[in-house]
Amino acid sequence: MEQPVRADHAGSLTLRPGRGATRARAARRPRIGKALAPYLLSLPAGLWLLVLFLVPLLVMLSLSLQTCNYGTGACVMTWHWGEFWQQVSLYHAQLLTSFYFAGAATIIDLVVSFPIAYWIAFHGGRRKNFFLLMLLVPFFVSFVIRTVVWEFILSDQGIILGGLKHAHLLPQSFHVLATGYAVVAGLAYNYLPFTALPLYVAIERIDRRVLDAAYDLYASRREAFTKVILPLTVPGLFAAFLLTFIPALGDYVNQQILGGTNDTMIGTVIQNAFLTYFDYAGGSALSAVLMAIALIGIFAYARLLGSRTIEEYL
């Protein structure tokens, strides 16, 4: 280290060590930059996650252990671990309803969007992008408005039920609105693209020649589907499941607009806890429980069904 410094001071007199040293230093600087580049590049995303995801998560977890004054909304940390259990025992019915509705909607979405995604991927030809756009067009309209339109569609004297009742195909007392069916229908409708798009990507990626090979090796259409297409779509199915089920689980709009009073979902409970009763501790505790259950479920699911194939393809 000493020599280069001296060489620098000596200027052009000491040629070799000086040059060598400056060159080495010049070379080291970009190398440090290179090593830092990935971190620098991921900094915005990292900050984003930190500020908008990790911090709120920690705030939420800490809130669930605090005790709040309903009047002022002021909270103090009391390490009240009992909060979680208390909330679960109070709202286990709504938790179950949520899993039940979100699960039903997800299954419907998977069943409905598989043929759509399959058709677009394999038979969409040059208009693939157009069909995908058509799939998304309804979703350019606000979430709430879409759901309100469903309220119109499903209402007792609306275009569908009204017509069927008028034609005496349904009894006058029949209704869908304010039942779990309406909520599931709304959820399924609103989250369809979250199922269809990952499925489309997975099916689109299947090499057509692999399918040809299956037919060549005596597979019937059905066997080609069950032995080749379906296994190759597993990662897509898993992604579609997660992207649909998780947001549907916490959804509170569909239930409030389309549902009745005895099928409240946990999203509504949490929303009320925060916005109506200012029970920040309770709302946070419920959110944490919901998240924990969903995470445990996903890991179990991945281990049981998907992990092997998912690791293999992703």
């Binding site: 090979a213 037919y215 060549d216 005596y218 393809y313």
Partner: peptide
Amino acid sequence: TPPNKRDVNMVFQSYALFPH
């Protein structure tokens, strides 16, 4: 006659092995 009913087999240009 569909391919699965013909007693010829094909080795594809890019092998087309079943990846899974």
